[in-house]
Write a protein that binds this DNA or RNA. Structure first.
Length: 245
DNA sequence: GCGACAG
DNA sequence: ATCTTGTCGC
C-alpha cells in the first residue's frame, strides 16, 4: 500500500521542528526503499555548495550561496550547472538541509541529464535521526545518493591502511553506516556515507569508482571548483586573464 | 552544566 | 563553510 507522503511533498521544511519530523520519516523510508547497486560505467553526479569568502561560523538565513552540479562518466564531464542562491538558515548541526537543501535540488534540476547516482558533501545515515542531507536530497530527487565528508557527524571508525583503496567501517552504535576510505595513498581518508538507496558497500564502490588522482572524488571536486569559480566571478575576484576550463 | 557537532 | 593556489617534493 502507498506510503503517506509527509508535509504535502514540500521536500524542504523551513522550520527545524518540521525538518526533524521529516527526517524521522525519511530514515524509515530509506530502510524500505529498493537497494541500488552501482554499474561499471555509471554516470556519477557531484554537488557542492559554497559560502561567501570570509564568512566564518554558521552564517544566517539569506547568506548568498553558490551551488554547482556536475555529471562525470569515466574522466569526462558530461553535464554541469551552477546557480547562485540564498541560504535558507544558518548552519546548525543536524539541520544542514535547512540551509542548503533547496539550493542543491535546484542546481541538480538545471542539469541536462539525470545522473545514476549523486555524491553529496554531507552525511547520510550518520545523523542523529538517521537522515542526513545526502539521504534527504536523494529522496527529494528520487535518485540514489552517497555522502562524502571530511569528518563524521556522530559515527566513528578506525584508520584504514595507508594504501589507496583500503577502508574501515564507519560505525554508529552497532550499525555500519558507511566507510572510512583511502582514496589516495598516504592522504587522509574521507568519510563515505550510505544515503538514499545506497548501503555502505555500494557507497564505497561509488566513491572508489569515481576517484581520480585527488583525495576528493572527481565529481565532487569538479562541482566544488565550479561553485568557487562562480563565486569568484560574483565577488569580482576573477584572476586577470582568467579562462574557464 | 559543558563541550562537541556534516557544511 | 572559510582562511589558500599552484607548485615543488617525498
Amino acid at each position: 500500500m502507498p506510503h503517506p507522503v509527509p508535509t504535502g511533498r514540500e521536500g524542504w521544511p523551513h522550520e527545524a521542528a518540521e525538518l526533524e519530523a521529516l527526517q524521522r520519516v525519511l530514515a524509515e523510508e530509506a530502510s524500505e526503499a529498493p537497494a541500488w547497486r552501482p554499474a561499471v560505467s555509471s554516470w556519477v553526479g557531484g554537488v557542492f555548495v559554497c559560502s561567501p569568502t570570509g564568512l566564518v561560523g554558521e552564517g544566517i538565513a539569506g547568506d548568498p550561496c553558490w551551488a554547482a552540479a556536475v555529471v562525470v562518466q569515466g574522466q569526462r564531464t558530461m553535464a554541469s550547472a551552477v546557480v547562485r542562491g540564498e541560504a535558507g538558515a544558518p548552519y546548525l548541526t543536524g539541520l544542514l538541509a535547512l540551509r542548503e537543501g533547496a539550493l542543491l535540488e535546484r542546481v541538480v534540476h538545471e542539469l541536462a541529464v539525470v545522473p545514476d547516482v549523486v555524491v553529496v558533501n554531507a552525511t547520510g545515515r550518520d545523523h542523529p535521526r538517521r537522515a542526513g542531507l545526502a539521504l534527504h536530497l536523494g529522496w527529494v530527487l528520487d535518485v540514489p545518493t552517497v555522502g562524502v565528508t571530511d569528518r563524521p557527524l556522530i559515527a566513528s571508525g578506525s584508520d584504514p591502511a595507508p594504501e589507496r583503496g583500503s577502508s574501515a567501517p564507519l560505525l554508529l552504535g552497532g550499525e555500519v553506516v558507511g566507510h572510512l576510505v583511502r582514496t589516495r595513498r598516504r592522504a587522509r581518508h574521507v568519510f563515505v556515507h550510505a544515503a538514499w538507496r545506497t548501503d555502505p558497500e555500494a557507497a564505497r564502490e561509488v566513491v572508489l569508482g569515481c576517484a581520480g588522482p585527488s583525495r576528493t572524488p572527481e565529481p565532487l571536486r569538479r562541482a566544488r571548483r565550479l561553485a568557487r569559480v562562480e563565486r569568484a566571478r560574483n565577488e569580482g575576484r576573477l584572476p586577470p586573464g582568467w579562462r574557464d576550463v
